[in-house]
Amino acid sequence: MGHKTAVFRKEHFNAAHRLHVEDWSAEKNAELFGKCNLPHYHGHNYELVVKVVGYPDPVSGYLIDMKVLSELVQREVLEHFDHKNLNLDVPFFKNINPTAENIAVVIFNLLRPHIPGEIDLQIRLYETERNFVEYPANI
């Protein structure tokens, strides 16, 4: 069966967002989210790392064609998120607060249907150089 291998694709996108819960008071939102709750939004230079794990094909040697993975991320993620206001321009966040955690889950859900089921998928999203999330966390 070969050796289980991890393959990574790194991408970058810029997006604005505001962390805000409509049912909360302005004071509670400001207390929890701080600068991330500014009414006119704020932006990040996100770094996205897509990790796929599985057994490479014994003939081609590929777990996944990196060109195919790159095109998939471009089409399913970057075209929707890059240079957008996540709250206003991206329908996936109409009813979801665009935290880094939720963005990672949305990206996972956009990519998962296009990755063969025998290949595991994990999303690592850097909101800043020091702050990042992984979804799912158990891979």
Results as ranks from 00 to 15, higher is better:
4 K>P: 09
13 F>Y: 11
77 V>I: 07
53 V>F: 02
1 M>R: 08
7 V>Y: 06
69 L>V: 06
6 A>V: 12
93 F>M: 03
58 P>G: 02
91 P>C: 02
113 P>N: 15
21 V>L: 08
29 N>P: 12
75 R>C: 00
36 C>Y: 10
8 F>S: 11
17 H>Y: 10
53 V>D: 07
98 P>R: 02
113 P>S: 15
82 D>W: 11
83 H>L: 03
84 K>C: 02
48 L>F: 08
112 R>Y: 09
78 L>M: 11
17 H>G: 03
129 E>P: 12
131 N>K: 15
54 G>T: 10
133 V>H: 12
120 D>Q: 11
31 E>N: 13
85 N>Q: 00
36 C>Q: 10
11 E>F: 14
118 E>F: 12
127 E>Y: 07
46 Y>A: 10
119 I>K: 07
86 L>N: 06
45 N>Q: 07
129 E>C: 15
15 A>K: 06
132 F>I: 04
124 R>Y: 02
5 T>I: 15
69 L>Q: 04
67 K>L: 11
111 L>K: 10
44 H>V: 01
17 H>V: 06
88 L>T: 10
81 F>D: 01
62 Y>T: 12
13 F>W: 10
17 H>E: 03
22 E>V: 03
108 F>R: 03
56 P>I: 07
59 V>A: 05
98 P>Y: 01
64 I>F: 08
77 V>A: 04
43 G>T: 01
62 Y>G: 06
109 N>T: 03
133 V>E: 05
8 F>A: 13
106 V>K: 04
64 I>E: 07
130 R>D: 13
112 R>E: 07
8 F>C: 04
100 A>C: 13
53 V>P: 00
18 R>M: 05
46 Y>N: 07
89 D>R: 04
139 I>R: 15
70 S>K: 15
1 M>C: 09
40 H>I: 02
95 N>K: 13
126 Y>W: 15
91 P>A: 05
128 T>W: 15
137 A>V: 14
135 Y>Q: 14
4 K>I: 15
22 E>T: 02
109 N>G: 06
113 P>I: 10
66 M>G: 02
41 Y>L: 02
129 E>W: 14
63 L>P: 00
15 A>G: 08
120 D>H: 11
35 K>E: 09
108 F>E: 01
49 V>D: 00
103 I>G: 06
139 I>D: 14
138 N>T: 14
94 K>Q: 14
33 F>N: 09
18 R>F: 11
41 Y>P: 00
124 R>I: 14
126 Y>M: 15
101 E>V: 14
91 P>S: 06
50 V>F: 04
3 H>D: 14
31 E>I: 11
12 H>W: 13
94 K>H: 10
41 Y>S: 01
61 G>M: 03
71 E>G: 15
105 V>S: 02
94 K>A: 13
31 E>C: 12
132 F>R: 15
48 L>V: 06
91 P>R: 10
128 T>Y: 12
68 V>K: 15
126 Y>V: 15
134 E>V: 14
114 H>S: 12
6 A>M: 13
61 G>P: 00
49 V>W: 06
53 V>M: 10
87 N>A: 01
123 I>L: 13
115 I>E: 06
81 F>E: 01
62 Y>W: 11
87 N>P: 08
18 R>T: 13
71 E>K: 14
18 R>D: 09
81 F>T: 01
111 L>D: 03
104 A>C: 10
89 D>A: 00
88 L>E: 11
133 V>P: 02
28 K>Q: 04
134 E>Q: 14
